[in-house]
Deep mutational scan, measured.
Amino acid sequence: MAEAPPRRLGLGPPPGDAPRAELVALTAVQSEQGEAGGGGSPRRLGLLGSPLPPGAPLPGPGSGSGSACGQRSSAAHKRYRRLQNWVYNVLERPRGWAFVYHVFIFLLVFSCLVLSVLSTIQEHQELANECLLILEFVMIVVFGLEYIVRVWSAGCCCRYRGWQGRFRFARKPFCVIDFIVFVASVAVIAAGTQGNIFATSALRSMRFLQILRMVRMDRRGGTWKLLGSVVYAHSKELITAWYIGFLVLIFASFLVYLAEKDANSDFSSYADSLWWGTITLTTIGYGDKTPHTWLGRVLAAGFALLGISFFALPAGILGSGFALKVQEQHRQKHFEKRRMPAANLIQAAWRLYSTDMSRAYLTATWYYYDSILPSFRELALLFEHVQRARNGGLRPLEVRRAPVPDGAPSRYPPVATCHRPGSTSFCPGESSRMGIKDRIRMGSSQRRTGPSKQHLAPPTMPTSPSSEQVGEATSPTKVQKSWSFNDRTRFRASLRLKPRTSAEDAPSEEVA
């Protein structure tokens, strides 16, 4: 009796068929016929556990003709996506030579605008209408194809895939403007070719909807975003200037109206006075309405000098805001240009540092100066060695804690006790272990408590650290204090090793 083939788990290929790579489910599931010992083939499952149809090819690079078809379809799909992405970037994010197409579109729109203006002049109306009709045909074809291509290429973005995504893309403001202008152009052409009475009025009214094509030149909205950011950044200043200017306008108009309503027919109503105030304070000055009385002229002159300053403030605020924003954008561009080279330089330096163990090129690091100058660790070890030599091999803490019996001779020589300023008595072995921070803190506390006492003391002649007598400086308080830590004499004296002298005989010792 033939044995059933062993159940295979995992992703390994079956024996005897090495080139074939078959994806098997996580659990080997066989058909009921196979479990019962029949000759049925096992049921194939996909990666998600769903059964595959009987005629479906197995996924994998070596699955025969199905694999070749899959490779061809995958390559075609990649080319399709690449083309779609390229078209989308050309239309929505132009760079380099892609601006040539947008310059061509701008020339078409500008020519249409010029011809629309010439069509309103009686001398050039006939020729402009003929040229404009031909140009409209060209623009309908160009913009119609462009609109379709834009909607198709938007599928390269995830949020615009599918018919719902394309509809979302078509609802964008600039796409809506394109659609309105396209419909208006078709209506103008249809009305112009019919030759009816309505054609002339339709051409004159709907052609100027094509002015909206100038708005579509900035599809990404960079200028509007820049203007919005400047207004938002200086909103408080703008609101303040406009508010005060509006108050000056209504008060000036009302007072001039009261002064001129009886003697001047131009100011017969408050609305006429508001019109005069707006034209005057905005420095336009049509001259259609002028005050005639001396009181009205004085009020107009005073409020004009006051109001023009507030009406001119928004222009200066926006101008300075634009300058600052442009400078910030230039700085951001320079930062973006330098970020990648800086990151590459840091990575290269780290690779060199991690692979080169000698690091002989590091001549400006802490390790280099640590090898030249005595390190703080060596100074600490030197302090501890000196203290243990004086205390008979014991550390200062051990000397303080060691009990001394009554009447027993002390094995240590008597030492002079010292007192730290602002604290109780402490171990004499710690007097010379006072660090730089303690010395600086002690000097600052003395300056806070009594700076007036220092200038009363007789001035001391500054001497070099080499000429100081070591026996005289029994305490860190003898170090000359200065008002600034930048004094080199104080810094050098604080680094010197001060020996400890006994109370009975204080021989001067120098520590090399």
Score class of each variant (00 low, 15 high):
178 D>A: 09
225 K>N: 08
181 V>A: 05
219 R>G: 13
136 E>G: 15
188 V>G: 13
211 I>S: 11
211 I>T: 06
210 Q>E: 08
294 W>C: 03
278 T>M: 11
192 G>D: 14
213 R>S: 01
249 L>V: 13
106 F>Y: 06
245 G>W: 10
236 K>R: 01
116 S>C: 04
175 C>F: 00
189 I>N: 13
108 L>P: 13
225 K>E: 14
217 M>T: 14
125 Q>H: 15
106 F>L: 07
213 R>H: 02
208 F>S: 06
271 A>S: 07
173 P>S: 02
172 K>E: 07
213 R>G: 12
254 F>S: 10
113 L>R: 02
209 L>Q: 10
208 F>Y: 10
105 I>L: 09
216 R>H: 06
221 G>C: 04
215 V>G: 03
269 S>C: 02
197 I>L: 04
201 S>F: 07
133 L>H: 04
180 I>M: 13
240 T>P: 04
232 Y>N: 05
223 T>S: 03
213 R>C: 03
120 T>I: 02
196 N>Y: 00
178 D>E: 15
191 A>E: 13
220 R>C: 05
208 F>C: 09
204 R>C: 03
132 L>R: 07
133 L>V: 12
253 S>T: 00
133 L>R: 09
216 R>C: 01
107 L>F: 11
214 M>V: 02
133 L>P: 02
223 T>P: 00
188 V>L: 07
188 V>F: 09
133 L>F: 14
239 I>S: 05
173 P>T: 09
214 M>T: 02
225 K>Q: 05
238 L>M: 01
177 I>S: 06
206 M>T: 03
115 L>P: 06
209 L>P: 10
231 V>F: 08
156 C>W: 07
196 N>S: 11
136 E>A: 01
184 A>V: 05
197 I>F: 01
310 F>V: 08
251 F>Y: 11
175 C>R: 10
113 L>V: 00
290 T>S: 10
136 E>V: 02
184 A>D: 15
102 H>P: 03
211 I>V: 12
177 I>N: 08
149 V>F: 12
310 F>S: 09
219 R>L: 12
271 A>T: 01
194 Q>P: 00
178 D>H: 08
224 W>L: 11
236 K>T: 14
206 M>V: 10
109 V>L: 11
203 L>P: 14
172 K>Q: 12
110 F>Y: 13
228 G>R: 04
188 V>D: 14
221 G>S: 05
196 N>T: 13
271 A>G: 09
181 V>G: 06
212 L>Q: 15
243 Y>H: 12
198 F>I: 00
133 L>I: 01
193 T>P: 04
210 Q>K: 15
136 E>Q: 12
223 T>I: 04
225 K>T: 08
201 S>A: 00
325 K>M: 08
191 A>S: 08
109 V>I: 11
219 R>H: 14
218 D>G: 07
178 D>Y: 06
143 F>Y: 15
257 Y>F: 15
175 C>Y: 03
333 K>E: 05
